[in-house]
Nucleic acid binder design. Structure first.
Lengths: 149, 149
DNA sequence: TATAATACTTGTATTATGCAAGTAAAATCA
DNA sequence: TGATTTTACTTGCATAATACAAGTATTATA
C-alpha cells in the first residue's frame, strides 16, 4: 500500500486551511478553535464542559478559558446542571446559533464547490468512503478514544 | 446531499488528534506544527522558507521562528541559495530525517490499524476517494490556493 | 540609476497552552 | 454517619504560538 500518511496529511491540511479562513461572520472574528467549540455545542445534546473538551482533545483548563471568552462574546451560555451542581451545561445563545449556522453554511458551500469537480458516482463514493473512515477510526484503539460524534 | 461539513469535521478532528499524539520520538518532543514542518521539508525539493510557510498557511514571521528552534534542535539546516542570496533553502539533518521517518512510521502504523477494520474493496475505495478529494480541492478556487503537495 | 518588490529577521503585543494548585460538590468507603 | 476520594471545574503561572509593524539585504524593474 502506498504511503497513507502523506495522503491524509495533504487532505487534512487542506481542510484545515479551509476551516481557518472560514471563520469570520459579519465583523465578528471567530478563531478556528472557537468555531470548533460552537460546532460541538450545537451538535451534542446538553453537553458539559468536560464532554466538549474531551471531544476536542483540549485540556480542560484551556477549554475553561475559551468558554469564558465565548460567554463574554455572548455566543455561549453556561447553565449549572440541576442534578449535579459541579457540572455546567453549555448551550448556544441566539447569536451563537446564528454564527455557528453561518460558518456551517460557508463551509458547506466551499465543500460543494469542491465536490462540483466530481461526477455523481465519484461524489457518492467519496462520501461513503468518509463514512467508512470515520467508523473505522471510531473503532480503532490507537486513536480517537475520547471522541464521539 | 447530507451535511458535508460535519462529515469532514469529524474526520479531520480525528486525524488531527492522531497527529497530535503522535509526535514524540525517544525523548525528543516534537510539536504538531514542528512535525508538519519536518514532513514538508522532507517532501519538497530544495524548498525555501517561503515555500514551506505558504504550504502550511503559516505567517512567515511565525515560521521563521519555528525554523530557528528546529535549527537549534539540530533537526533542520538552512543553506543560502547560491543563485539568490535572499533565499534560504531548508533541509533535514540526519537526525531530522530520523525523527521525520519515525513519525511517519508511527502515523502509518496507526492508519494501517484503522484500515484493518475494512475489507480489501473498502480499502481501495477509500484510498481512491481521498485521491479524488485531494485533486478536487487542489482545483478549487475557494480554498487551498497556496498549497501544493 | 532610482524605485519597487522579494525573502527573510526582529520587536512587540496578544493569545493559546497546559501543569500545579485551588474550590466545591458528589460518590465511595469504613 | 462521618471521613476520604473522585469529579467538574477555576485560577495562577510560566511558556509557546501567533501575527502585525518595521527593519535589513538582495534582486528585479522602470
Amino acid at each position: 500500500m502506498e504511503n497513507l500518511r502523506s495522503l491524509f496529511q495533504v487532505m487534512t491540511r487542506r481542510f484545515g486551511l479551509l476551516n481557518k479562513n472560514c471563520c469570520s461572520v459579519g465583523g465578528c472574528d471567530i478563531s478556528l478553535i472557537q468555531s470548533h467549540i460552537l460546532y460541538e455545542i450545537d451538535n451534542q445534546h446538553n453537553p458539559s464542559m468536560q464532554q466538549i473538551a474531551d471531544t476536542l482533545g483540549t485540556d480542560i483548563t484551556t477549554f475553561s478559558r475559551q468558554v469564558q471568552s465565548l460567554v463574554k462574546m455572548k455566543l455561549v451560555k453556561k447553565t449549572p446542571d440541576p442534578a449535579d451542581k459541579r457540572i455546567s451545561i453549555l448551550s448556544l445563545t441566539a447569536e451563537g446559533k446564528y454564527i455557528a449556522g453561518s460558518i456551517d453554511q460557508q463551509m458547506n458551500s466551499f465543500l460543494h464547490e469542491v465536490f462540483s469537480q466530481m461526477n455523481e458516482f465519484e461524489k457518492e463514493t467519496v462520501i461513503r468512503s468518509i463514512h467508512l473512515l470515520n467508523n473505522a477510526m471510531a473503532k480503532s484503539s490507537a486513536c480517537c478514544k475520547p471522541i464521539q460524534g
